[in-house]
């Protein structure tokens, strides 16, 4: 019996080894050896006639034989290409298929970016109402009712009688916040503002601002410079240069206009034809200054005890500079060919 097993093993492996992959012969061999009437199946049946003491050993040998034949056949049949494998290849250049991911509006995106920049510096984000009163939009900010300084703040009124208007800047949130909170604090106020300007490529009667306010015991003009320099470098790139020019805003003193070196021509002298800065080399990005003591007085702070700085920038302006957009109206037309660029 043992010899027979040995012979069958040799024959079977030889036969399997010789058969060509991809032919029906692999399956025919499986039937020949492992089928219901196969050679190995028959061997198992003959175990009964083996002397009892040899049974375990013979059984084990037949099992080993079965395993090795099965494995060899399996290996051989793996080499057989299936019907799928025989099919011609698909056109892998056909387009892929997936849903479209919507885009965040570039204004929201810019506000988010500005917010997170200031949050990383320790600021808190605060919001306020768009329908405002003269009191917050002007008076608490030291903007006298009848003074040329109000010319810069032409305003939509909802009701002249009730002195109710659409805020022309986000600064009223400054005094609203100060009335309810005690220093020290650092806040940033994003929001929508309105001014009755005729609409053209660079003007819109509605736009967005981000306002900042830092108040504490020892806040200095140099802190203002440092904060805004950090901001501009992160927003527009490390190589950007800053310029602080004296200016005037009723709610800050000293006040500054903040410029960055032109992000297109780099502010190199002689670039008279730069489409971005028109050869000036500088781009105005925001107004800023130390909080005017009169504003502190209006909210009941003691200007001898606290100082602070404030700044404000137009979000559309920042986005226009950052992305090189040439018309402010694009932001509100909502043309998907525009929106999907961001």
């Amino acid at each position: 019996m043992k010899d027979r097993i040995k012979v069958i093993t040799e024959e079977a492996l030889k036969e399997i080894g010789a058969c060509r992959a991809g032919e029906d012969t692999v399956e025919a061999l499986r039937v020949k050896y492992l089928g219901r009437k196969g050679i190995i199946t028959e061997l198992f049946k003959q175990i009964g006639s083996v002397p009892a003491e040899d049974k375990p050993e013979i059984g084990k040998l037949i099992n080993i034989l079965k395993e090795s034949v099965t494995r060899s056949l399996d290996e051989k049949s793996l080499l057989v290409p299936s019907a799928e494998e025989k099919a011609p290849p698909i056109d892998v250049t056909l387009p892929g298929e997936s849903g479209h991911i919507g885009r965040i509006h570039p204004i929201t995106r810019t506000i988010d970016e500005i917010n997170s920049l200031f949050v990383s510096l320790g600021f808190r984000i605060v919001e306020g109402p768009e329908i405002e009163t003269e009191h917050y939009n002007f008076e608490t900010l030291n903007i006298p009712l009848e003074h040329p300084s109000r010319d810069a703040f032409d305003t939509f009124y909802v009701s002249f009688e009730k002195k109710t208007l659409l805020r022309s800047h986000t600064s009223p949130v400054q005094t609203r916040f100060m009335e309810k909170n005690r220093p020290p604090f650092a806040i940033v106020v994003p929001g929508r503002v309105f001014r009755p300007d005729a609409t053209d490529a660079s003007h819109s009667f509605m736009f967005h601002q981000v306002e900042g306010l830092v108040v504490g015991q020892d806040i200095k003009f140099s802190d203002l410079k440092g904060t805004l320099t950090t901001f501009a470098r992160q927003m527009f790139g490390k190589e950007v240069r800053m310029r602080f020019r004296p200016s005037f805003f009723p709610f800050t003193e000293p006040s500054a206009e903040v410029d960055i070196s032109c992000i297109v021509c780099g502010g190199k002298a002689g670039e008279k034809r730069c489409s971005m800065c028109g050869g000036k080399g500088w781009l105005e990005i925001m107004g800023a200054g130390m909080v005017n003591p009169k504003v502190f007085e209006a909210v009941g702070y003691n200007p001898e005890k606290v100082t602070g700085f404030a700044f404000g920038m137009g979000v559309e302006r920042i986005a226009i500079l950052k992305y090189g957009i040439n018309d402010i109206r694009l932001f509100f037309e909502n043309d998907l060919r525009f929106l999907r660029q961001f």
Binding site: L121, I125, A186, G216, G226, T227, T230
Partner: peptide
């Protein structure tokens, strides 16, 4: 150019 000492705010957003 300096940076202000900003006190930890109760919330960010």
């Amino acid at each position: 150019i300096t940076l202000p000492k900003i006190v930890e705010q109760p919330t960010r957003f």
